[in-house]
Amino acid sequence: MSSARQTSEAQRGVRSKTLPLPDPANATRGVAEANALDAELLQSMMDSLKADIFGKVDSLSSSLCSEITSVRKELKESIGPLQAKVDQHGQTVLELERAATDHSGRVTELEATVSRLTAQAKHVDDWCEDLEGRSRRNNIRLVGISEGLEGPRPTEFITKLLQEILRLDEKPLLDRAHRTLRDRPREGDAPRHSS
């Protein structure tokens, strides 16, 4: 049996060896058809992939547009109060600038007035000092006149005293005569000055 098997296998092998070879023209046509099928399949896959990509891009684009719209709306709502505050602060700054300009003008006027009044006060001060000096020139201070000698009329007493001491022909003209403004001295103390 083994020989019969070997014989049938040998015949088969011969047969497989004797099969006709494919025709090169048919092979080229088959390859071209296979290539055409592959190209169509590849084209349909690319179209499908392209449609998927465009669909995803469109959905992302519409999603992004809606997000941008909502963000713009939120920004507009947020900017409104801020713009109102900025406008309010701008108005306040303008008012402060006007007030500062007004105060600057007033300060300038006041500085001029103070300068003028300072000059006048100095002039009045100098004038008063001159008057005090001149008024002191006409005062006479008498020292050593006992208390109570002047009596009830000190001006007449001093007039007579000066006429006698200075040996004047006429009595000198006096506006007034008085003791200095101190307390009356006790007995034995030096008398107050007379003017």
Rank of each mutant, 00 (worst) to 15 (best):
S2G: 10
A4T: 01
S8C: 01
S8Q: 05
E9A: 12
R12L: 13
T18D: 09
T18V: 07
P24S: 06
P24H: 06
P24Y: 06
T28N: 08
G30T: 13
A32S: 13
E33S: 13
A34L: 15
N35H: 02
A36Y: 04
A39K: 04
L42G: 01
M45R: 00
M45S: 00
V57L: 14
D58L: 00
S66Y: 08
T69P: 07
V71E: 11
K76I: 12
I79E: 15
G80S: 15
L82V: 15
Q83R: 14
A84C: 09
A84F: 10
K85I: 12
K85T: 14
H89Y: 10
G90D: 14
Q91P: 01
E97W: 00
E97Q: 04
R98F: 03
R98N: 10
A100F: 00
S104N: 06
R106I: 12
T108A: 15
E109M: 05
E111P: 04
T113Y: 11
V114I: 15
R116W: 08
L117H: 05
L117I: 06
T118R: 14
A119C: 06
A121N: 14
A121Q: 13
K122S: 13
K122G: 12
D126E: 02
C128A: 10
C128T: 05
L131E: 09
G133H: 05
R134W: 08
R136V: 02
R137H: 06
N138Y: 05
I145F: 04
S146H: 01
S146F: 01
S146K: 04
G148F: 03
P152C: 01
T155L: 00
K160R: 09
L162H: 05
L162I: 11
Q163M: 08
Q163R: 13
Q163D: 06
E164W: 03
D169P: 04
D169N: 12
K171A: 12
L173M: 03
H178P: 00
R184S: 01
D189P: 09
D189F: 14
R192A: 03
H193R: 09
H193Y: 09
